[in-house]
Write a protein that binds this DNA or RNA. Structure first.
Lengths: 117, 117
DNA sequence: TGTCTACATTCCTTTATGGGAATATAGGTA
DNA sequence: TACCTATATTCCCATAAAGGAATGTAGACA
């Protein structure tokens, strides 16, 4: 069942935080590492998990791999991402991630297209 | 993270079908068995899973155990159940479950309060 | 060509999950 | 009390998931 697969992707805290950040803008791996303060291997594996289920797409830009949500998400995914954004209000961890991400915008080595929705 | 726990409950097809039926009305175990056409042990275990995470509540009525959604669900759960109802439109399996359930209403041994929202 | 950077993958271990067969249990009824 | 019905639990097995340490790799650049 396709819907259950979406929820499988949503059911792990780190993945949930990753997806939440991606609803804001495309990002490269180092941004996730810095915003979530989690080790590289952990981030990388969860991104691979999401990639294998087609919940995120990648594009290379020089040395960086930029992750983004699919350009044409299914209706189910779109609804659930919207719901996630609403639910994220109720757990401060999501807000903290956003704050750290915002701080990164000023001093990090990002390629131009990251942060450019 | 509380939100991730909700998605853990949502991430298995049988549980998703159970929760979907429960958004319609409280039900007893035999209704799930008949509507989902799944073995008793499977239904019972998934119900136990949901119960242990407080996504469903139980009440005994004679020989039957009636399962229902919590009377005061958290905002997150409520939003996600609403989202599930919308998403369920896109997979025919949910519709079939509802149809089988509707057929049961007429010829099954239900206590009065089941089906009475 | 060699090196560096950003990221991915492999290997290993632990824990969780899911399913079925068999068995247990609680309440109702004869 | 004995039995029946509805449901729960236990035991066993197979598979998936998650995390860390170590290692591999592709592209940029000197």
């Amino acid at each position: 069942m396709k819907l259950a697969e979406i929820y499988q992707c949503f059911c792990e805290p780190t993945r949930l935080r990753i997806l939440h950040l991606l609803t804001q803008s495309p990002l490269c791996v180092c941004h996730f590492q810095d915003a979530l303060r989690e080790p590289q291997v952990k981030i990388s594996k969860h991104l691979a998990y999401l990639r294998s289920r087609r919940l995120v797409r990648t594009k290379r830009s020089g040395n960086w791999i930029i992750y983004s949500l699919p350009s044409k998400p299914s209706a189910e995914l779109e609804m659930n991402l919207k719901c996630l954004q609403d639910c994220a209000q109720s757990d401060p961890i999501f807000g903290k991630d956003l704050k750290r991400l915002a701080r990164l915008r000023s001093n990090c080595c990002e390629p131009a297209e990251v942060f450019a929705k």
